[in-house]
Computed example of a mutant assay.
Amino acid sequence: MKSSDTYKAIGLMSGTSGDGLDIAHCTFRRTATWSFVIDKASTVPFPVDLGRRLGGSHLLSGEELALLDVDFGSWMGKCVRQFCQENKLTPDLVASHGHTVFHQPHKGMTLQIGSGWTLSQESNCTVINDFRSLDVSLGGQGAPLAPVGDHFLFPAYDFCLNLGGISNVSMMHNGKRAAFDVSPFNLLLNELARKKGLPYDRGGKMASAGTVNTTFLNQLNSVGFYQKEGAKSLGREEMESVFLPLLNQQEDTIENLLATLITHYTEQISKVIHHHPTIQTNKLLVTGGGAYNDYFIKQLQQRLGTMTEVVVPAPSIVEFKEAVIFAFLGVLKMNNEINTFGSVTGANRDSSGGVLYKPQGPAF
């Protein structure tokens, strides 16, 4: 990419929660190890119409989906251009996660939209997107991708737990990085909160007022996903076919259902941590919107006990860690270095995923 070991990159992340686009401009430096600084970061809410189209993207016709691909790429590109102009930034590259429409790795297919060509032209930046497809073609899950960032950028932690729409965890196991989706998270919690007219259960206050429904808890713990071993991932398909129908058939108060979900999540996450012990006292880094659910954090720490310290970092890391990591994956791709671990995804080898788009003309 260039002779210097300092790189400036923007990461774009729009996750399964579907609330907006995270933009993080980072400076990465490589000496004996990698380090990073978040220079500027912000979240741009989706315009109402765009958010609605993205939320229903899996139901669109082929033509409508192709148009949304272009429109979303164009909107992201304009957001990047404005972000850079306002903050006087000149990134070396923009790395975009895109919006996941379909994720069916068992069929060799995954689709994240947000046209790289359009994003590149609108932002006038080099763009890298489609980070998952190569890994899926190599027999992997195409997810999770964050563990490469966990490995190089957050080595002080034994476990990295991200709590977005879905919870996923990353750790070292038998000398290799291992990671997988653990359970749903905000997708189900927010679904219940909306029935109370709220976007989410702030701090877990409603959940803390509820009582666990043991029948519902047993049903959740019996879901087939939890019986799978090795690399595994959750997507919209499992939410719609398994978890949401199970949630919607419950006849109980919102508070009790929220309390049950919190208990379910702490059980599943603690099970993973306890099955992958380290010699020293474990440190568990918690990021993503769920890190602000104080009731969940308290319940998780209580279930894990004194041998594991639950760490909630500064808000900039909580909110933008995934965007930071995608920026980092883009840097690795530009250097033709591994940015996807086969040991994590189940692919037959490590790979350097992503597709490169270069604009015509000068950068900012």
Rank of each mutant, 00 (worst) to 15 (best):
M1A: 14
I10D: 05
L12F: 06
M13G: 11
L21M: 14
A24D: 01
R29E: 12
R30S: 11
A32T: 13
T33M: 06
S35K: 07
I38E: 04
L54F: 11
G55V: 02
H58N: 03
G62V: 09
E64D: 15
D71H: 11
F72E: 09
G77C: 10
R81G: 01
Q82E: 15
Q85W: 01
E86K: 14
N87S: 13
K88R: 15
H97L: 08
T100H: 04
M109E: 14
M109D: 06
S115F: 05
S123I: 08
V127R: 09
D130A: 06
R132H: 11
Q141P: 04
P147E: 00
V148G: 08
D150V: 01
P155W: 07
P155L: 09
G164E: 11
N168K: 10
V169P: 05
V182T: 12
S183N: 12
L189K: 15
K196Q: 14
G197V: 04
D201S: 12
R202A: 14
T215Q: 01
L217V: 07
K228Q: 14
E229L: 12
G230I: 07
G230H: 07
S233E: 04
G235R: 05
E237S: 12
P245K: 12
T253P: 02
L258K: 12
L261G: 06
I262P: 00
S270N: 03
I279A: 14
Q280T: 11
Q280K: 13
L284H: 05
L285Y: 06
T287A: 10
Y292N: 15
N293G: 07
F296W: 09
F296S: 06
S316P: 00
S316L: 02
I317C: 01
V324K: 03
L329T: 03
V331L: 11
N336L: 07
S343M: 04
V344E: 01
R349Q: 15
R349H: 11
S352W: 02
Y357D: 01
G361C: 01
